[in-house]
Write a protein that binds this DNA or RNA. Sequence first.
RNA 1: GCGUCGGUCGGAUAGCGGCUAUUCCAGGAGACUGUAAAUCUCCCGCCUUCGGGCAUCAGUGGUUCGAGUCCACUCCGACGCA
Length: 399
Amino acid sequence: MHFKIEKKLKDSLGRAGVLTTAHGAIETPAFVPVGTKATVKSLLPEEVKNLGAQVVLANTYHLYLQPGDELVAEAGGLHKFMNWNGPIITDSGGFQVFSLGAAYGKDFSKIIRGTEPTVQIPECSSAEDGVPRLATIGNDGVSFRSHIDGSLHYITPEKSMEIQHNLGADIIFAFDEATSPHENYAYQDEALSRTHAWAKRSLEYHHSKPNKNTQALFGIVQGGLEKDLRKKSAEYISTLPFDGFGIGGSYTKEHMELTTRLVNEILPEGKPRHLLGIGEPEDLFMGVENGVDLFDCVAPTRNARNGSLYTKNGKINITNTKYREDFSPIEEGCGCYTCKNYTVAYVSHLFHGKEMLAATLASIHNLYFIINLVKKMRQSILEDNFFEFKKEFLKEYLK
RNA sequence: GCGUCGGUCGGAUAGCGGCUAUUCCAGGAGACUGUAAAUCUCCCGCCUUCGGGCAUCAGUGGUUCGAGUCCACUCCGACGCA
């Protein structure tokens, strides 16, 4: 893997570059569509490629459970298995420590609401609080109760690496613990020590295998909402010989920005940075401005399936009554396949009729919108007008 | 004409003497950020100062402390017998 910075943004951390992987180059900053189970939901790989995606992200935990990483290896690896010849990234399963653990059955997720970031739910600090969860954390690894069949699985940093080696993505991630923002400081500190120890173990395992030559390994910075822990994490992870870095966690938007800036000021400039699980248009601007090179997020595809579509004037809910007789495209002038060929009324009809094509056409539009938005950000960096572009876009988008 | 069932929100249902009339669909709105997600939440008779208030189970009477529920008749719909 090779990363080259082409141009830096003045007075900020932003930059445009090219990341070359074993399966091709990625012009950064770039948005990475999520295909958790080795498929970007509702889309053919050809469509994903045609709408402008350069790379996709699949999930270690899900593929390990089904169909199994060894089967994928037997099939010739993820690229061949899912018929995607471009770059692939796999997440380590670290996010599932959070989503199936502390966040299981709760009403909070990746982005938390409210302006008070230090809100703590004390009972979350203990795994023995009787609250049901599918992931239980130990210092050596994490026990997962399969959400598919209830079977018990134990994933360690080494196991995550082994699975990711079998899957064969171009970029893989160290196994980490994404913590709940509601945990107290003591827990965040303890969890961070674990993430750091696991980062080292992930790296050692990876470097002991020939896969190190074809697969790049990214380390992950955690630290919750605590500034000093984030700093500590960025500093420690920076010292390890990772090929690039991920920034993970769950936070308020305000904290995400502070964290991204703080962390990227510390991470080595010459290596790529991936802001995990982000985001919405305004978040992507924030990330790019603060030195993020890669983003992945389920938002465009999940929102699409749920009828929420991006337009330059904000998101619309296409199932609303007012769109039933709207014979214009979702967005006037949009270059996506859906907008070039179909009307809002038609897509609305597909949603009301619960037709599968609704998800496909909506996903094409949303992914095109987001991928293209980040491409325009890249272009604006190269043309020295990022801030003007940002201001203009957000003025219309956020109304 | 006689008899037997039935008539509960836009549709389909539950309810078989007891307080707030069930559930599903349709309809309306919202949420969703390293995918437990083609999912979830709320609303869906009228009014409301969001505390609640007032209606309501084909209709009209009646029995009862209390009726969607029991009784009588009327109207409507199925079926059966003439």
